[in-house]
Write a protein that binds this DNA or RNA. Structure first.
Lengths: 181, 181
DNA sequence: CGAGCGCTTGATTGAGTTCAAAAATCGTGG
DNA sequence: CCACGATTTTTGAACTCAATCAAGCGCTCG
C-alpha cells in the first residue's frame, strides 16, 4: 500500500473536482492546509522569486499528492503556487482533518512510509542539485520521471532542474548531436 | 512533543555510544537500517562524488536524527557517509524495529509530524539551491542554523551550500568589508 | 491567416570554479 | 605551554559553465 488515497480511505468522503489546464489552484500568500490528490491529469507547484522568475518545486501526476507542507507545518502563508499543466481531476482534502480520521495504526504506519519516501526523493534531489552538472541533472530527470517530459513544456523542465530554458535547449542539442555523429 | 527520543520512548531500551571527533560511523556502500539520535555533539552526513569531492547533506546537533532514509527506503546500499564533527554521544536504533514498538496512535501522529517537518526543511533547501545565489544561501544558512557555523569548519559549510571553500571565503570577506565601510 | 507563445541559436557577461601559493589556525608531542 | 607540522582559510589569476540579452523560426489556436 503506497497510495495515500487508499491509506486515508478517500473514496468515502471524497469530492473530486475538475480543473482546466492552466487553472491556478493555489497562490502564494494564501494561508491554507489543503492538499491535492491527483486522480487524473498533471499539476505543478512552483515559487516566483523577486525577479519574477518561476522555480518548479515538483510535478504531480496520477496518484501523487501536492501541497506546501513547509508553510503548512509552520503555519505561514504559502510560498508555492499550484496550477494545472493538463485538464485534471483532483481530490481536495484538508491535511488538518487527517488527525480526526481515526486511522488505524497500520494506516498511520503506511502514511509514515509515504512521508519517508517523499523525504527520500527530496534527499536525492538535494544531492543532485549540489553535485551534478546541468547535463547530468537532465539525464537523471529523464530516468527518474520517464512519463513527465512528454507532458510538460521544456521551460518547466528547465525550471525544475534549476537552469534556464536556453541552457536546456543547448543541452538537448548536444545530446542529439552526440547520437548523430 | 517534537522529539523522536520521547516519541519512541528511547529511555527504556537505549544504549548511548560515545564517539570521538572524526570517527566515521557509517560508510557509503554499507547496507543498514540504522539511524542515529544525537544526544550530545555534532554529526554530519555527506556523499563523495566521482571526483572525490565531498557534499554535505546535513548536520545534526543535539536532538536531531541522522540516517540515510533514501537508501533505506529503497533497500539499497548507503550513499551517505556519517561522521563526528565533535566528540559525540549517540543513541543508535534500528529504523525497522520502530514498526514493532507498538506505538500509540498519538505517538505515530507525532512521528508523522516529525517527518513532515523534515520534508519542510528539505523543501526550503531545494528551493534555495535552485533560486538563490551563493551569497543568499549563506545568509539563509546563518539565520536558519545560528549555532552550527561556530562549531563547523568553513569548508563543510561551503560544501553544505554547494559551493567551494574559496567562494565562501570571498563571500565572507565581502560581508566584513560591507560592515567596516 | 495572423498574433503570440515557446523553442532554438548565437554573442556577451558574470558568478563561481580551478589552480596555485601565501597566511592563519589547529593539534599534537615534547 | 611552546613549537612545529599539518590542515584550513584566504587571496589572486585564469578559466568555464550557465545566465542574460537579443533575434529568428515554427506552431498553435483564436
Amino acid at each position: 500500500m503506497d497510495n495515500l488515497k487508499d491509506i486515508l480511505n478517500f473514496d468515502s468522503n471524497a469530492k473530486p473536482t475538475s480543473f482546466k489546464k492552466g487553472t491556478i489552484i493555489q497562490r502564494a500568500g494564501e494561508i491554507t492546509s489543503l492538499a491535492y490528490y491527483v486522480k487524473k491529469g498533471l499539476l505543478r507547484s512552483y515559487t516566483i522569486d523577486d525577479k519574477g522568475k518561476e522555480h518548479v518545486f515538483m510535478f504531480a501526476s496520477e496518484g501523487w499528492i501536492i501541497a506546501d507542507l513547509e508553510s503548512q507545518e509552520f503555519n505561514r502563508p504559502t510560498e508555492l503556487f499550484i496550477d494545472c499543466i493538463e485538464n485534471s481531476e483532483i481530490l481536495i482534502f484538508d491535511r488538518k482533518s487527517v488527525v480526526n480520521l481515526n486511522l488505524s495504526n497500520e494506516q498511520l504506519l503506511d502514511y509514515n512510509r509515504l512521508l519517508t519516501r517523499r523525504i527520500a526523493v527530496l534527499q536525492k534531489r538535494v544531492i543532485m542539485l549540489m553535485s551534478a552538472s546541468a547535463q547530468n541533472r537532465y539525464n537523471f530527470f529523464l530516468e527518474m520521471y520517464p512519463d513527465i517530459p512528454n507532458r510538460v513544456p521544456q521551460r518547466m523542465i528547465a525550471s525544475y532542474l534549476g537552469i534556464t530554458p536556453q541552457a536546456l535547449s543547448t543541452i538537448r542539442a548536444k545530446i542529439v548531436k552526440k547520437y548523430s555523429s
